[in-house]
Write a protein that binds this DNA or RNA. Structure first.
Length: 151
DNA sequence: GCCAACGTTGGC
DNA sequence: GCCAACGTTGGC
């Protein structure tokens, strides 16, 4: 089992939005970065644990825990001309984008990016590295355990 | 709104 | 394959 951190803009999908979904699950649609796609398509397995992170907002940081509940499959929005995620180069025979589905586990207190940066134990956390913009990043077990310990 | 740090695109 | 131009991310 692996650990991940997944960013979402709360104005798009917040942790509360996830908790309010019918089965408390959501398709992680809209990823249009190959590295992030590859993590979902090639490495994520059902049961992997996820830190849910709010980005591009007034209080960026970890806000909850989720779990991968469905393996990657083609992202439906790439085929929808009305979607902002439409990709004219994608076809059903050759889909370009994939998404997993995640399930709400629980909310946590807000662990802001400034606090995350304050812990030497988290110095190697991927999202804290300069210039890292990946919306999905792996989290080392040691990093996961450390953060679980400060929640 | 700014801007650093990317990733992608497309002409050559 | 190179690389300049462009678009995006995301904290501040």
């Amino acid at each position: 089992m692996r650990y991940w951190l997944m960013k979402s803009e709360p104005s798009d999908v917040s942790i509360d939005d996830l908790a309010a979904m019918p089965a408390r699950t959501i398709a992680w649609y809209g990823v249009r970065n190959y590295q992030a796609r590859n993590f979902m398509r090639d490495q994520m397995r059902v049961g992997d644990q996820v830190f849910f992170y709010h980005s591009s907002c007034s209080e960026p940081g970890i806000v909850g825990i989720a779990e991968v509940c469905k393996l990657a499959y083609p992202d439906a929005t790439q085929f929808d001309p009305a979607s902002k995620y439409f990709d004219p180069k994608a076809t059903s025979l050759r889909p370009r984008w994939f998404n997993v589905e995640v399930k709400f586990i629980r909310k946590t207190r807000l662990v802001g990016i400034k606090e995350l940066r304050s812990y030497p134990d988290l110095a190697s956390l991927r999202i804290l590295q300069t210039g890292n913009r990946l919306s999905i990043t792996p989290v080392d077990p040691a990093e996961w355990n450390f953060i679980m310990g400060i929640l």
